[in-house]
Design a protein around this nucleic acid. Structure first.
Lengths: 260, 260
DNA sequence: TACGCTACGTACCGTATCGTACCGACCGCG
DNA sequence: CGCGGTCGGTACGATACGGTACGTAGCGTA
């Protein structure tokens, strides 16, 4: 595992993404559950200071112990908060999609965190400077309120994840992960290798391969060279552990409010 | 496991604790990292509306989806936030001691949470009504600030726990758990059965028994009929996974500020 | 079209852990 | 002092999973 992990990490270093910044359009606001609640004046500030960016696979959002300078509101991408252990292995400890945003530590008065965060499924997001985020949170009660609600859902999801990681099988967690990610992009096709999924789940690729094969034989998914298709969503739900529903219900309103 | 869990649960129902409420003394404030920061006026409010209570093993603090009416600030007890799965099994998803308090959901604008919370190591705590807590958080910036800092440490601990539950062995996690609990009571003797510890760690008792025996043979701890003695603290640290240090550093200032 | 790379499928073995069971040691209580 | 209950130590088979290895299929590129 250590070897494969380092190979991935070195792959990251090689990629230098040219994020083509574009101006934000008001229309894109409704694609993110947090931005949706902004009033006209606040929205204007985001239009002025924010940018619409395209995030590539594994593009870094923030690093451990480094000051967070930008806040990302995903529109159709998915971010992962990842903990890195001393032995170099990584494991996902949080998923962020169009129901939320990337900068929890800022909400709690911190400027950095112990984990790193990077793009897990490529797509677009709205990026604003941290100071704009702070002023919005201070001046817009509705904004602060939905952020608190999001934070609460996130904390509950974290607890469920801790339990899930201990109590449930790879097969169940694999199905759960796919569903949670799918809900955040609202598309049935995900660009995703088994090796990457294995890292997210904190397990070996062989384990994921077996679980994926089982899911595929059951007719729930279809795997092909870095892209996975969710064929039978209901079937996948039946394969997932209860944690999926628990987490979904936590984010319930937030995810629904931007469902197309 | 299901059987043993239900046996524990039925044991809970039987116990009806008569929490002998006593008036709060100002001197006890410095035993809790959050209460320490209160100014005179705020402290007076707590003296008036709060109570010093003794919590017994497994005494309930709050239940899932039920409105939280009281907030507890542990002085020398330890509380556990516990997730209950559909199959009835329970697992700890948060530890609360003299570095913090029991009511995260209130901090984020919620009145209930998905998990339950109960006393894990008996001892004393200061209890105040939720509305007093709210008014303190609103009127005392220093109070709110230390709460935010605590929340941040707690969230980071949750992430580390999620990773730890997946990546580390029972032996390592057992040592980590003992150390984290010890830091919160500052005493080397804990009333704690292996069966209870197994539930906290989300594992079977036999696994804990083997890990405990190994720790005992190494001379780090000493187990005897529901009480465990930490003999060699440094040794125990060497047996624990990195997660102990990570979590300790997160709570660092908060735990130190009340270390006797 | 040939080549090479990436990613998937599969197999094998060692091991941590689970579930269960049984027994002995200790404790509280009568 | 004896008895029942709790708790800890140990054992054992079943199994999920990790780690590794190897073969193959699709895809991009020249």
């Amino acid at each position: 595992m250590a070897e494969s992990t380092s190979r991935i990490a070195s792959g990251n270093e090689m990629k230098k993404h040219s994020t083509s910044d574009r101006p934000v359009s008001l229309a894109s606001f409704h694609q993110n559950a947090i931005l949706t609640v902004l009033g006209d004046a606040a929205a204007a500030a985001v239009l002025k200071r924010g940018a619409l960016v395209t995030l590539a696979l594994r593009q870094r959002i923030y690093e451990p112990e480094q000051t967070i300078v930008d806040v990302y509101f995903p529109l159709d991408c998915v971010l992962s908060v990842v903990a890195r252990m001393l032995d170099g292995s990584e494991i996902e400890v949080g998923t962020i999609g169009r129901e939320g945003m990337s900068a929890f530590p800022l909400l709690m008065g911190a400027s950095a965190t112990a984990n790193s965060c990077y793009c897990q499924v490529r797509g677009t997001a709205i990026r604003i400077p941290a100071e704009v985020f702070h002023s919005l949170a201070a001046s817009e009660p509705a904004f602060r309120q939905v952020l608190d609600r999001y934070l609460q859902a996130y904390v509950n999801m974290l607890g469920q994840l801790a339990a899930c990681n201990r109590l449930h099988s790879i097969y169940e967690r694999c199905a759960r992960w796919l569903l949670m990610t799918r809900d955040r992009v609202d598309v049935d096709r995900l660009p995703l290798t088994q090796e990457f999924l294995a890292m997210m789940l904190g397990t070996g690729r062989s384990g994921v391969a077996i679980a994926a094969a089982t899911l595929q034989n059951a007719g729930f998914i279809k795997y092909a060279h870095g892209t996975i298709d969710i064929v039978d969503r209901a079937g996948l739900e039946s394969a997932a552990c209860e944690c999926y529903e628990v987490a979904r219900d936590q984010f319930g309103g937030l995810l629904r409010s931007v469902t197309r």
